[in-house]
Design a protein around this nucleic acid. Structure first.
Lengths: 250, 250
DNA sequence: TAAGCTGTGTGGTCAGACCACAAGAGTCTG
DNA sequence: CAGACTCTTGTGGTCTGACCACACAGCTTA
């Protein structure tokens, strides 16, 4: 009964320890799969399962071939993992869409208020708006730029955690946002309103008024989702009663 | 050049589609690994890599043996995956501890303000405080209960996304919180203060005053981390310049 | 009837074999 | 000598087949 941990968890823990102790840093290569397998005394398939987890979590990037860009490299890109996690949780009804939207409201209003207090450089955000306003875009393209705009505000705030979380929240309900666009009475009218609201958000931030920045963001997000009638939860769902031990996770 | 996607991504996408289309719901069993392998035309090892990802993300639970509790079962427990993701991102310096704390502030103050407005049942939270005050606890045990208390508030708000995110944020800096405790001049003094602040938070919520609830939570969280001088970022870190394509994630 | 045993199907793991790929070393050619 | 070419090497990606430990279901046995 030794070996309480699965073999792949041994690999994951070994890599996590190397990260915490500074033996592995972003940009470094992981040892090859065969070498890790031999070092840790586990099969190569177990090593691969651990690396797969790290890849989905946005911690490593893998590439075949030879040379300095090949192999598994530590990258620490939080966005990808957050998006995958939240999208799948929404798919499995672990997350309700309404909760996602509410969380967006909390985070984005906080970001806007923070930016209004610090007056950062928002040229990147503004140029995104220029692109959106330059020509008529189909809903999919428009919403993609819209997402980029919101993300750019989070990045301007300098908080990587909030930025990554927002990216994940957004991508998890991307399908709902796009599907909702097709139910609108007038896409051109809605998109015009969204663009006005975007400008209003920037104006409020640049005027240094946290309260009005917060309000502008709130109305912008809440307005779109109210207008598109997104599902609060799967209608055919029975009350969730899934109670079980959480996986020991990494 | 067909087969743009890796084999394990094919499996992941298939399962995600089944979830979205309602063919798989929480509580259901996944087909066996060998069956999935045959159905999708990929090797069993690729199926296992996909399932491993789902397990770490908190979407499935696997068990050996036979019978209704064995196999891979959809569970949709967001907490575990969020914790693993954030802990590893912190380990890889993708997330700065200061950003984690700031995000906690944003989310938890919002939760407190929300609770103050809705007057929910907080007996679970209160009984946790009773336990914490019943006897002198070592820092580790105390902080574990402290985390549970904060989580219970998020759960009382009913927002699963915020609750899961808070759990992940908290666990990602658990080590820092515990390490910080040992640097305190007087643990008993600090813990007494923390307990007072916990009661103050509950009182503010129950009095229905969002602003003071928000303030109480803010001071509580910010105070502890200011007192423990947690690292803002690894000191030996060069400016991060890791730019790379994000893994296509699931 | 009740206790024990065995069959069967599950995930967990390993070993080995290929493949495609990309860089670098070495070779050939002008 | 410089450039283009070829081959070697090492990487991750995948598949196959083989075990193991485990847990339940049903049968066998006392």
């Amino acid at each position: 009964m030794t070996d309480e941990r699965r073999a792949w968890q041994v690999v994951l823990e070994s890599i996590e320890r190397d990260l915490l102790d500074g033996r592995l840093r972003p940009g470094d290569h992981l040892p090859g799969e065969r070498a890790l397998s031999a070092d840790l005394g586990v099969g190569r398939s177990s090593v691969r399962e651990a690396i797969r987890v790290l890849e989905v979590l946005g911690l490593v990037r893998t590439a075949t071939g030879s040379g300095p860009t090949s192999g598994a490299i530590i990258v620490a890109l939080p966005g990808g993992g957050m998006s995958a996690l939240m999208r799948l949780q929404v798919a499995a009804t672990g997350f309700a869409v309404a909760d996602i939207v509410q969380t967006r409201l909390v985070l984005e209003t906080a970001v806007a208020a923070d930016l209004a207090g610090s007056r950062p450089d928002l040229t990147a955000s503004a140029s995104l708006l220029d692109v959106m306003e330059s020509r008529d875009l189909p809903p999919g393209d428009f919403l993609a730029l819209d997402a980029q705009f919101h993300l750019s505000l989070a990045e301007a705030s300098g908080n990587q955690v909030i930025a990554a979380t927002m990216a994940g929240l957004r991508s998890s309900i991307e399908n709902y946002a796009i599907a909702g666009a097709s139910t609108l009475p007038s896409w051109s009218g809605t998109s015009a309103r969204l663009m006005r609201e975007h400008r209003a958000i920037l104006t409020a931030i640049e005027s240094g008024d946290p309260a009005s920045a917060r309000g502008a963001v709130h109305d912008h997000i809440a307005g779109y989702y109210a207008e598109t009638n997104l599902p609060s939860r799967r209608p055919d769902e029975t009350p969730r009663l899934v109670a079980d031990a959480a996986p020991s996770g990494a």
